[in-house]
Design a protein around this nucleic acid. Structure first.
Lengths: 127, 127
DNA sequence: ATGGAGGTTCCATCTTGTGGAAGGTCAAGG
DNA sequence: CCTTGACCTTCCACAAGATGGAACCTCCAT
């Protein structure tokens, strides 16, 4: 399987796949002409990576997840622990974003939005 | 005012202030010895920047906001419009994060987290 | 004079890719 | 057999928004 083929199947652009190889997330074989050849297992890993990234896991965490995935004697507690840490990070981000949203919405609400210069948004930023 | 002094007052580290100068957000004068000298206006701009960044505005948006701030004949509608775009982006991020959180929480909930290898989280990622 | 606290510049690093240039390869059609 | 276009390769640069460190300069106090 060539790179664009596996890309289509895994849902990742070739550029990203080359990048994942570069940082050691996959190690596809090479043909005599230098082209990468992807096995079913490579495809599997790439699809796994795409889903883990979509859930917001960092690349480092994906590395650990892949490692756990391939370790038949893993403890599910280790996976859960990783996921919990990630969840905590998401919650922190959500809280921060929510705080920003609240403040910003108030300011927008207070601003007339007409053609006069007076503006509560700028006033608050300059406070 | 030297860089660390203005940094303390504006709530920004010197490194960040140098960076802001590099990208043209401020243009402090220089003393004969090469040291930056910050005016009250520079301080004002830096504090403005810190608050705008804390609200999640990009540096480019901060540039525009500063421009509007100093334009006495601005229309508050322009500021509001910028802020609205930013709010929309925040909402999009919130939605994405929320979606990730929901999925992740379900998976965590389904995982026993014991010392056995069976794990719904990995199963889902490998789906 | 010397020491330490500040200042300066420049370069590297972080994260997660993406864009593009220069060039090799393959398969199909004329 | 040759050309054309679609792929493939590597390598370098850039994005945002800083941050860390090295090497070196300057000022002030003792």
């Amino acid at each position: 399987m060539n790179i664009s083929e596996v890309g289509k199947r895994a849902g990742l652009p070739p550029k990203t796949i080359r990048f994942y190889e570069e940082i050691g997330l996959i190690t596809p074989k090479r043909e005599a002409n230098g082209y990468r050849v992807f096995s079913e297992n490579d495809l599997h890993r790439l699809a796994f990576l795409r889903r883990a990234r979509a859930l917001g896991f960092t690349v480092q965490e994906c590395r650990q997840l892949l490692h756990l995935y391939e370790d038949e004697s893993r403890a599910s507690a280790d996976v859960k622990s990783l996921a919990r840490e990630h969840l905590a990070r998401i919650d922190a981000q959500l809280e921060e974003l929510h705080q920003m949203r609240t403040t910003l919405a108030e300011l927008i609400n207070a601003c007339m939005g007409d053609n006069r210069p007076d503006c509560p948004i700028l006033r608050d930023l300059a406070r």
